[in-house]
């Protein structure tokens, strides 16, 4: 299989100026500003084959988005190399730009006041898609994303989930060979999240498009990707199969409890490892397989006021990768 994305020692340092609070600070900064540096990427390297669906996982500010932005030519790297489909991204050659797409969960690329259909039509012209191919691709996307009924509604009136479906369709009209997705499920409800994941994995299966997806939800990656790259503080801390990552670090769940009266630590310990305990609030960690059984036992035996079950947070996973 041919290589689609190759990254070597990529670094990015942002420069910014320190600004002191208040009016005096603002006045002072007119004459003298202290320059600060933020190393967002510290020499990362990886390789992605054509047709792969890769998850880029990491906490906020880890460098995921910066990487995607460099690979799509939005940002210039401070040093290092990258080649995507044979092109150096930050040269921004139109030949490269016609072959990839980037969708950002928090940035709207559609025309806000017009129906999505209008933005699609415009993309047809921008990417010079011939009418027949456009028709075919559009029909396919309408079917896959189930957006037939919302095409004529102004984008500003759509729900977050509907808008994301339209954003994705707009980005896929020119059949890109590489697709960058930056937090595509952010801010969506659970059902919409699940749907978006389904569409992405379907599209990747049908079209064999290389997909690089960033997320700070473990679930996104677990559900979608075979391979995951975990990044923290600008350094790649894990690059391998999702299965292995989950087996090693993701086999636990978190149970959050609020009790109606104090309970002894020993009494609680038999339901799982105590992570936090603050008066009546308790956070327990327990194995994924017996989550149902433990929850049932807790509800039966403890004076529970409130209970929720959560995934282990990515920050926790990363901490574990480091501490082993």
């Amino acid at each position: 299989m041919s290589t689609s994305i190759q990254v070597k020692n990529l670094s990015k340092t942002y420069e910014y100026f320190k600004k002191e609070a208040g009016l005096t600070g603002s006045l002072k900064s007119l004459f003298w500003r202290e320059k600060l540096y933020n190393e967002a990427l510290k020499g990362i390297s990886f390789k992605i084959d054509e047709g792969e669906l890769i998850g880029f996982l990491g906490p906020n500010g880890a460098g995921k988005t910066t990487t995607l932005k460099i690979l799509s030519g939005i940002l210039y790297p401070t040093s290092g190399e990258a080649v995507v489909l044979g092109y150096v991204p930050w040269k921004r050659s139109p030949e490269y730009q016609r072959q990839f797409s980037i969708v950002m969960g928090q940035k709207n690329q559609l025309w806000w006041d017009l129906p999505a259909q209008e933005s699609f039509q415009l993309n047809k012209e921008i990417y010079e898609i011939d009418t027949k191919t456009y028709r075919n691709n559009l029909d396919e996307l309408i079917e896959l994303f189930e957006i037939k009924d919302i095409l004529d509604i102004p984008v500003r009136k759509l729900s977050m989930g509907q808008r994301m479906k339209c954003e994705l369709s707009a980005a896929l009209l020119h059949s890109p060979r590489v697709l960058f997705l930056d937090e595509p499920t952010i801010g969506l409800d659970i059902i919409s999240q699940e749907k978006i994941r389904h569409y992405i994995s379907e599209y990747n299966k049908i079209k064999k498009t290389t997909v690089l997806l960033t997320s700070h939800y473990m679930r996104d990656v677990e559900r979608l990707c075979g391979r995951v790259i975990v990044i923290n503080n600008g350094i790649i801390v894990y690059d391998g199969s999702v299965q292995d990552l989950m087996n090693t670090y993701g086999k636990h769940k978190i149970i959050r409890l609020r009790l109606s009266k104090e309970y002894t630590e020993n009494g609680l310990a038999k339901y799982g490892e105590i992570l936090e305990r603050d008066g009546l609030c308790v956070v327990l960690k327990t194995g994924k397989e017996d989550i149902a059984a433990s929850t049932a036992r807790i509800l039966n035996e403890l004076p529970v006021e409130d209970l929720s079950v959560e995934e282990i947070e990515i920050e926790e996973v990363i901490k574990k990768i480091f501490t082993g």
Binding site: S72, G73, I74, Q97, F100, I102, K107
Partner: peptide, 13 residues
């Protein structure tokens, strides 16, 4: 300021 200039950087225009 909002970062929407990104769109102008990635299109073939």
């Amino acid at each position: 300021r909002k970062g929407t200039f990104d769109t102008f950087m990635v299109r073939p225009i």
